[in-house]
């Protein structure tokens, strides 16, 4: 049993469908397909367990898409359970 402080750097490759439902009229719904990159970082994380199999991290990042979309990952708490 040990606790480890972890940092993380990653680049996501999102392929997404984004639907815009407009304002008050649902008939204005439109969809856009975006491909982009999503650099993400986790400056703070904790891993624990005999083999550090439990990992909790705070993830932040951005998505930049090819169709002008820009998403800001303002913070996400992520839990990972690893096993053999």
């Amino acid at each position: 049993m040990g606790v480890s402080v972890a940092g993380r750097l990653g680049v996501g490759i999102p392929l997404s469908v984004q639907s815009d439902f407009g304002s008050t009229a649902p008939t204005t719904a439109a969809s856009s397909f975006l491909v982009g990159v999503a650099p993400r970082a986790s400056p703070l994380g904790f891993a624990f367990g005999e083999s550090r199999e439990h990992h909790i991290e705070l993830v932040g990042g951005a998505i930049v898409s090819t169709v002008g979309g820009f998403g800001l990952d303002m913070g996400e708490l992520r839990y990972s359970l690893l096993f053999l």
């Binding site: 480890s4 402080v5 972890a6 940092g7 993380r8 750097l9 990653g10 680049v11 996501g12 490759i13 999102p14 392929l15 997404s16 469908v17 984004q18 639907s19 815009d20 439902f21 407009g22 304002s23 008050t24 999503a38 993400r40 994380g45 891993a47 550090r52 990992h55 998505i63 998403g71």
Partner: peptide, 19 residues
């Protein structure tokens, strides 16, 4: 209302550093 729904399939390689 909900203006936007997004769903992405993501492949995210990265490094984890432990102390």
């Amino acid at each position: 209302r909900i203006d936007t729904l997004g769903l992405a399939v993501s492949v995210e390689p990265g490094f984890v550093f432990h102390t």
